[in-house]
Design a protein around this nucleic acid. Structure first.
Ligand SMILES: [Zn+2]
Ligand SMILES: [Zn+2]
Ligand SMILES: [Zn+2]
Ligand SMILES: [Zn+2]
Lengths: 148, 148
DNA sequence: CAATATACTGTTATATTATAACACTTTGAA
DNA sequence: TTCAAAGTGTTATAATATAACAGTATATTG
């Protein structure tokens, strides 16, 4: 698979992450993450399944879902809840203060860092004395490019 | 079904909404909305299905989904994307500036009005010159009551 | 080196969530 | 009364996700 430098960088980072943490950088894990890195658009689990299967070697759902779960748990991919789809994380910094933006027209995804968002969530929490352990924000619309 | 005043108020509002807009306030619609109003917790479509079915009269998935879609489209119920579940709208005012909070422990849902949230989204949009047509924010954690 | 524990994969089967398609019914308006 | 539109009932099936269990790869330790 031909990939851009940034993609192979990210894959290397993932590999190093595995080494550091004594997880295995196995074939299904590598293939799933590579695929998501190579196409920066949301892919459903069964799309991934299809794209990784050849006529001879059919991959099965659990193989894909396990790899997805592994990378998701470790912050390398995100699930887009309102689409049942997955994308490779493009930042790997924030993971609290971010939201996902999906362009309805070109289908591209970006992660927006939103300090003010997390700030406003923090504020409301303080008022209501609730504790937040997880949050997702997903925005749909049209991106800069599609917009002009 | 025994219901609190506020619930029957909301049901009446829904009924009036239908009259005003020439939609029909049909039996499946009424039953689905009543159920969601009576239990203010997230219910999956198939939970609704079960709760509305008796031994004699089994309801089928499309019946439930149609009612859900109808009320959702018209702002009377919300889908919680990260749970594949539905709740009755408890406010019916905002619908732009709100997010859903789900308590992991008691499973109660509340809708939080978040002007600052929409404000911070607005800001980021201005910067990036993108246009947002839809957004969801879902927060998970523990509520005031479960928290002390 | 073997023995063994652990993490991971392969496979089959099945659960869960959602929709397509089409015939039928209700309702209101022409 | 006829007709169009909105809505329901029903069957079948699509799309998404997980359970369960046997087998394999890898690292540890005796
Ligand atoms: Zn990310
Ligand atoms: Zn675009
Ligand atoms: Zn609401
Ligand atoms: Zn609670």
């Amino acid at each position: 698979m031909i990939m851009k430098v940034s993609q192979s960088n990210k894959l290397n980072r993932a590999k190093r992450f595995c080494e550091t943490n004594k997880y295995r950088f196995t074939e299904p894990r590598e293939r799933v993450l590579s695929l998501l890195l190579s196409r920066h658009e949301p892919l459903g689990a069964y799309q991934i399944l299809k794209l990784l299967s050849s006529k001879q070697a059919k991959i099965k759902p659990p193989t894909v879902y396990r790899a997805i779960d592994f990378w998701k748990k470790n912050g390398f991919i995100h699930r887009i809840e309102s689409m049942n789809a997955y994308i490779a994380c493009c930042e790997h910094k924030h993971h609290q203060n971010f939201c996902i933006f999906i362009c309805n027209q070109c289908n591209k995804v970006s992660e927006l860092t939103l300090e003010t968002l997390s700030q406003s969530i923090t504020n409301i929490i303080k008022d209501k004395s609730i504790v937040i352990t997880r949050s997702t924000t997903e925005l749909f619309g049209s991106c800069f490019e599609c917009n002009r």
